[in-house]
């Protein structure tokens, strides 16, 4: 039989239409998600070195004053506060996709870091935090006799 789009229920599979509706629904809801915004935010990347670790995060639109970094043992916390979007009676909004508000994210590090040797930089909307493993926490090589 020739299948045409006009008879969607003529399928032998009674669930085909249901699945189609479901995927259409998913597409619809998917579209509601703002582009650029990850489910977890701020999204971070980790880089591993010999005895150090680097974390990078995309935080466009912030200044150094809007970012608060705290570290304790193996936990790194980032608190960011986005600047208020522009307001006024004379403003007509067409699109609002960029992040606002404030958020806090705590991340567990693979090892304890030395709070005295943390290098944090912020350039072009990218936060880079380089952390060192404390001397007493580094794995020791044991000489075998």
């Amino acid at each position: 039989m020739l299948q045409t789009a006009f008879f969607p229920l003529s399928y032998s599979d009674p669930f085909a239409e249901m699945r189609r509706m479901q995927s259409a629904m998913n597409r619809l809801l998917d579209g509601a998600r703002q582009p650029g915004l990850a489910a977890i935010y701020p999204a971070v990347n980790f880089w591993a070195g010999e005895d150090s670790i680097v974390m990078t995060a995309e935080l466009p639109g912030l200044t150094v004053q809007d970012i608060e970094l705290t570290v304790k043992d193996m936990m790194l916390s980032i608190r960011v506060t986005y600047p208020e979007p522009e307001t006024g009676d004379d403003i007509t909004w067409h699109r609002h996709e960029r992040a606002d508000g404030s958020l806090l994210r705590s991340l567990e590090l693979p090892f304890r870091v030395d709070p005295e040797h943390i290098d944090a930089r912020f350039q072009n909307g990218i936060l880079t935090v380089e952390m060192q493993r404390p001397e007493d926490d580094k794995p020791k090589h044991i000489q075998i006799k």
Binding site: G36, P85, I91, W93, H94, H96, E97, R98, A99, I126
Partner: peptide, 25 residues
């Protein structure tokens, strides 16, 4: 990637703000 944007209009001017982290000016 598609950058997230804010677009608004005020006093005969359209303002577009686009997030492009990692791009040098």
């Amino acid at each position: 990637f598609t950058p997230a944007v804010d677009i608004f209009e005020r006093g005969g001017t359209t303002v577009i703000m686009a997030d492009m982290p990692g791009v040098a000016p």
